[in-house]
Design a protein around this nucleic acid. Sequence first.
DNA 1: TTACTTGAGTTATAGGTTCTAACCAGAATT
DNA 2: AATTCTGGTTAGAACCTATAACTCAAGTAA
Lengths: 217, 217
Amino acid sequence: MDRRQQYREQTREEAKRIALDQLAEHGTAGISVNAIGKRMGVTGPALYRYFANRDALLTELISDGYEDFADTLTAAAATGGTPADRLRATAGALREWALAAPHRYLLLFGTPVPGYEAPAHTLTTATRAMAAVLSTAPADDRRAPAGELDEQVAAWGVGIGQPGLTPRQLHWGLQVWTRLHGLLSLEVANQFALSGIDPALLYRAEVEALVACWESR
Amino acid sequence: MDRRQQYREQTREEAKRIALDQLAEHGTAGISVNAIGKRMGVTGPALYRYFANRDALLTELISDGYEDFADTLTAAAATGGTPADRLRATAGALREWALAAPHRYLLLFGTPVPGYEAPAHTLTTATRAMAAVLSTAPADDRRAPAGELDEQVAAWGVGIGQPGLTPRQLHWGLQVWTRLHGLLSLEVANQFALSGIDPALLYRAEVEALVACWESR
DNA sequence: TTACTTGAGTTATAGGTTCTAACCAGAATT
DNA sequence: AATTCTGGTTAGAACCTATAACTCAAGTAA
């Protein structure tokens, strides 16, 4: 890589780093081109040499976030032990990742930025994260899809490059994701704040319910 | 009520109605005081006679939203039939309410507006919505709380004015809410868009899982 | 070495936002 | 009839995004 390009990349990274800080402090609306520039010791318009516009910067933040998210889940799912243990590890990593930067979690999975379209590249990364979750599914006997949902789920499994998984495993993976996301999105939005209930306990209970859910059915 | 006050209230309602339109069209950021004023045939600053600031307007939108939300769930939960039937009705009403105005759903339960503090009034309304969900819980034998979570949940039950419910019923109610919210929040954020899976089917399956979840345990 | 091109910064500016201040007209009250 | 209150106006401050025009330094090529 060119020397110039190296500096350029460095500047981009710095801008994104500061943007994440602003995000953590003041939410999405706090990500201001001028404010980021000021923190970098540069005027606002200078940043337009590096990002087409504010949306492009946000999009990169989202892309990078997905990448990091998928890496984290993949690493956690790669631990040893029973499927249940690996689910616990993955779920724990998921919660830690969300709580470490709540605003970033919401940037990825919360209110969509109006007019924002997910670039194809992030979709493949999201698939990688889902693959990590699916890798914690216990073994299952393959049988014919029963019902419309089963068929759609099976088709989805093929679409994301997981043709070896049964509909039940795929559906279970979806449940893991949607249920844990339900808890996490409410927790990061502070919806449990005044209930006096420790979200960590609720989360753990849900993970165990997911383990039990597989056994019982 | 005074004639003056009546007009005043009418103007406030109109502003909120238009704000909801803007919300549906352009998201939270699209709620602009100037734009609302223009649609009302009035300049922007005129609205500051009616709302202290933009945040106050948003807060009222949230309060009204909670009210409507609680009304909807309460009505749905008041139908007859078995507990399972009433859960199905309530869950169906919940999804319809969310999909009828996705942005409003996210305004209530999605990314928190930075610096926004829920007024006490909305908390009691949220409790009313939770009561509707809890009213669909099947009967249960009372027994001593087992574990830290059970105790916290029991205390929460007392706090929200539901001392007659068992920890298991309360926890089940929380699961209903968090699981359905998990699905809905992802659906309104378009996260299932490219999977080819019909969110309605996924939702129905989750409701049935919640019914079965009670039986099995 | 000199001339030219490119890159990265600047300021100025347009048009948008929220919100305050000052002002004005009409209605209600005293 | 005089005064106060209410709801509107315009002007303007302080932000925001984004573009245009300009400057200066660094790299490249003759």
